[in-house]
Simulated assay, not measured.
Amino acid sequence: MEITRFLLGDGPKRVAPFSHAVRAGDFLFVTGQMPTEPTDNTRCVPGGIEAQTHQVIANLKAVLAGCGADWNRTIMARIYLTEFARDYAAMNAIWEKSFPEGGLPARTTVGVTGLALGALVEVDLIVAL
């Protein structure tokens, strides 16, 4: 199986040493994206879980575009929330609207004690190519 690693010069700036995504066969594994502005990896966007969820989705879509992949072919997502009870419903409302009706991927959502940069949310993906 051929493996291709993507380190995107025009993708969201990385907050740690990782590839933005790795292609293995017909699947793309996308590293968890943070709610940082694409050109500033030193802080999260302000505005709470709503703003951060929108930014994470935008960053994921930017990575997918840089890899030639399609958001609507996402088959699995893992979502990490630092304030699970408080933010779960608001994040879900935004998440659901980001996919076409009937097009939601499989998903796991996990409450965690902390994320890089004090983020409230992080999401990684597996996408079919």
Rank of each mutant, 00 (worst) to 15 (best):
R86K: 14
V123L: 05
I75C: 10
A77S: 12
L120M: 13
P17L: 13
E50K: 07
E83A: 03
G32A: 04
T113N: 05
L8Y: 07
F84A: 12
R86N: 13
P105V: 13
F6S: 01
T109I: 08
C44M: 06
T53M: 11
N59R: 01
I57L: 04
V63E: 14
V22Y: 06
A65R: 13
T109P: 00
P100D: 06
P105G: 10
T53R: 08
E83K: 14
I79K: 02
G103Q: 14
E101M: 06
G103V: 02
G102T: 07
K97W: 02
G25N: 14
A51T: 00
P100I: 13
V56M: 01
M34R: 10
K61P: 01
V112M: 07
T39C: 05
A58K: 03
A62K: 15
A58G: 09
I49V: 14
G11S: 12
A24P: 00
R14N: 00
Q52D: 00
G32H: 02
Q33L: 09
V22W: 13
R78D: 11
G32R: 01
A58T: 08
F6A: 04
L117W: 01
P46G: 05
T42E: 04
T36M: 02
A62G: 07
F99E: 07
P46I: 00
N72K: 04
W95C: 00
A21D: 07
T36V: 07
G68S: 06
P38G: 07
A89K: 14
R23F: 01
R5M: 14
G111L: 08
L8I: 10
V123H: 02
A58E: 15
P17W: 13
Q33E: 06
G103K: 11
F84P: 09
G48Y: 09
L117P: 02
A85M: 05
I49F: 05
A116R: 04
V30P: 02
A65I: 06
K61F: 08
A16F: 14
D10R: 11
E83I: 01
A69Q: 09
F18T: 03
V110T: 11
V121C: 11
R23Y: 00
F84R: 15
G66N: 09
M1L: 12
P17N: 15
Y88T: 01
E96P: 00
P12D: 15
V127D: 14
H20K: 06
L64E: 06
A69D: 15
R86P: 11
E83R: 15
M76L: 09
S19W: 02
H54K: 06
W95E: 08
T39S: 11
N92Y: 15
P38K: 08
V110A: 06
V63L: 05
L104A: 08
T113H: 14
I94Q: 10
D40Y: 09
I49K: 10
L115G: 06
Q52P: 01
V30R: 08
L125G: 07
C67E: 15
A77L: 10
D26T: 02
A65Q: 15
W71F: 05
K61S: 13
A90W: 08
K61Y: 09
C67S: 04
D124C: 08
F6D: 15
K97E: 11
L81Y: 01
A85W: 04
A16R: 03
P12V: 01
R73N: 12
F84K: 12
P46Q: 03
E37D: 04
E37P: 00
M76P: 03
G32N: 02
